[in-house]
């Protein structure tokens, strides 16, 4: 019986690993952020700026996950860009993503200058998060959405731009 225990433990580990996908959070500097926006591979982009310290951002995550699940095949990619510090990836970002059960790609900014990143995304943005920007398949900015939005509010906005939306 004792001999079976390690086997069971190894099997449990392997099965759990299979079920729970590894959470990957890559850092993104200015160049990488530009690349995320411009290299679209034929897909529209919903880029959500958020932070683990931002309550409305955290509340918005289930709706972003739902959008990711229902819109990826309709030609929209959902990407989260955390404005936390890169060294908070293991301590704050990954634990939150795990708890939220989100599976869409998430990056953490590595621009190291709030103002530079804010102005790069939109010169009129004051830095309040969450902020969501929608880009077309050529990386052209279509919508700037300030504050927390619900799934249906996002759908309404997307329906103006995505032919397959709704």
């Amino acid at each position: 019986m004792i001999r079976i225990i390690p086997v069971i433990l190894i099997l449990t580990f392997l099965i759990t690993r299979e079920i729970t996908p590894q959470i990957s959070v890559q850092t993104a500097d200015e160049q990488q952020i530009s690349k995320i926006i411009s290299e679209r591979g034929g897909k529209f982009l919903l880029l959500n700026f958020w932070a683990t310290w931002c309550a409305p951002c955290r509340e918005e995550f289930p709706d972003l996950q739902k959008l990711h699940e229902s819109y990826l095949e309709k030609g929209l990619e959902v990407i989260g860009l955390s404005v936390d510090y890169p060294d908070e990836t293991e301590s704050k970002i990954k634990p939150f993503l795990k708890k939220a059960g989100s599976t869409f790609p998430v990056f953490v900014q590595d621009v190291n200058n709030d103002e530079k990143l804010i102005n790069m995304i939109d010169p009129e943005w004051n830095g309040a998060v969450p902020l969501t920007v929608i880009y077309d398949a050529n990386g052209n900015k279509l919508e700037i959405i300030e504050g927390k939005k619900s799934y249906s509010e996002f759908e309404k906005i997307l329906s103006k731009h995505l032919p397959l939306a709704e």
Partner: peptide, 10 residues
Amino acid sequence: KTKAFGCTIK
């Protein structure tokens, strides 16, 4: 004029 990330005023 300067900018920084912060919490949205509710």
